[in-house]
Amino acid sequence: MNARFLGIAELAETPSVAVVVDVMRAFTVAAWAFGQGAEKIVLAESLDEALALKARRPDWVALKDGALAPGFDTVNSPGLLRSVDLAGRTVVQKTTAGTVGALAVKEARLVLCAGFVVAEATARLLRTHECDSVTFVVTGEDGQADEDLACAQYIARRATGAGTNPGEFLRRADESRAATELREGVRQGVHPDDVALCLELDRFPFAMVAALEDSLMVLRPCAAPSPTDKASV
């Protein structure tokens, strides 16, 4: 498998297969939303679009980065979201990097959104599809976020079926600037457990697939295939 690791701004063309990585915290939060029973997540282009979607569908749950704001139900924190019952609900998510990265590759044939919490399921889905070339979108810090790059590199290695010790990759993420900022309270809308939850390897057994549905980019959980299952992309 030929793996490329690019920042959002480096995406000169639409890849066939893209894995969009945001460890701290968009796609850790998305995984927790599905873990709490959410049916789907709509990835909003802007805060205004998120609020407009929420206004049209008051039963939807809207969340954003930073402090809680009028019109939103909660914030982009796994520690806070894990106590919210989302059974059967639709979540609208707008974040600074993760949702932007997913929308940047919305025309790709296969779009996966990932963090460490769904790493193995994501790698297994890539193996099942026998992808020759995969573009990993490193969303944080203009493509320089080491927690996202470490996670992307780990998934890429696991996608080849190679035995890979996750310790070094998790250590890099734990020592990243994002982790430091979350611990030190530089960012708003943070729970003390957020970093630990973002580094909980393979917490969930599903991958997360994003696709266009009626002009909206919608993220859904996808059961990790068994090692013998195969598909083509």
Rank of each mutant, 00 (worst) to 15 (best):
A87L: 08
T96E: 00
A38C: 03
A179E: 04
L80A: 10
V19N: 09
K106G: 06
V233R: 06
I8K: 01
A69K: 12
C113R: 11
A145W: 00
A52K: 08
G66C: 04
R158T: 08
V138R: 10
E13L: 10
N2C: 12
E168G: 14
A196V: 15
V195A: 01
E181L: 11
N76P: 01
P70W: 04
V91K: 00
K94L: 00
E39V: 08
Q153R: 15
Q93A: 02
P205S: 07
A31Y: 02
A121E: 08
P221R: 06
L199P: 06
S176N: 01
A87C: 06
D202G: 06
C198Y: 07
V186S: 05
K64E: 11
D73H: 05
C131Q: 13
A196T: 15
L197F: 02
G79H: 00
D65V: 09
A210D: 08
G140D: 02
P192G: 06
A31S: 12
V92P: 03
A178Q: 12
L53M: 12
L47I: 13
S77I: 00
A30R: 02
V186F: 05
L212K: 11
A9S: 13
A210G: 06
P78R: 02
Y154H: 14
R203F: 08
N165F: 00
G101N: 00
L47W: 13
L51R: 15
G140L: 07
C113N: 12
P58W: 07
I155T: 11
L51D: 07
S133R: 15
D202E: 09
L219R: 09
R89K: 11
R57Q: 15
R109F: 11
A196L: 09
F34L: 08
M24G: 03
V218P: 02
A87D: 03
G163V: 15
I41P: 01
W60N: 07
L53W: 12
E39H: 08
H191C: 10
A152N: 03
A50P: 05
V117D: 10
R4N: 12
A55Y: 04
V134P: 14
K54Y: 03
G7E: 03
C198M: 11
M24S: 00
T128H: 15
R25M: 04
A159P: 11
M24H: 04
A12F: 06
L219N: 10
G66V: 04
D146L: 13
L63D: 07
N2P: 11
A18E: 09
S16N: 12
E175K: 11
A145S: 13
A33N: 03
P192I: 04
R56A: 14
L201S: 11
